[in-house]
Amino acid sequence: MDVIINGKTHQVQTEDDTPLLWVIRDELGMTGTKYGCGIAQCGACTVLIDGQPTRSCVTPVGSVAGQNITTIEAVTEDAVGRRVVEAWVVHQVPQCGYCQSGQVMAATALLKQNPKPSEQEIASAMVNLCRCGTYNAIAAAVRQIAQG
């Protein structure tokens, strides 16, 4: 089947119910999107599907054929994504960094849909887990863009 990732169409040979995450990581060798839990608990695998933040670990690849999938590898090709990455750098957000691909994608999705989110809207959108506890830095980075 054809899968469109970061604007490029890939032919993939796999079962329809293979999670998109493993197509991205194993089939296509793009390892920026992370496996954390496999059950949509942690959000480390967050990608954008037609702009919607989506947990790729529970998304069957067969369900997204023809849709536009954006992964962390293309985040800086987007103006909002670039601002998010710069805010992540300014606020020195990552520690171990393992969840941050998903966090950056979640923030990018939020700010593309809602450039001026309220505190409550930030809290509702930024729900991915971080075992290093970078939550305050994440919120500060998103807030800076929302207020900027």
């Binding site: 194993d26 060798g29 999107t33 992370k34 750098v89 957000v93 990552p94 960094g97 950056v104």
Partner: peptide, 27 residues
């Protein structure tokens, strides 16, 4: 001083053990 690894970790370029790939590898 700014951390050396922050930008790489913010754009998905940091490589962890789980990301390693070599030719001919099985899983």
């Amino acid at each position: 001083v700014a951390r050396l690894d922050v930008r790489g970790k913010s754009v998905g370029k940091a490589a962890y053990a789980i990301d390693m790939q070599v030719d001919g590898m099985l899983r």
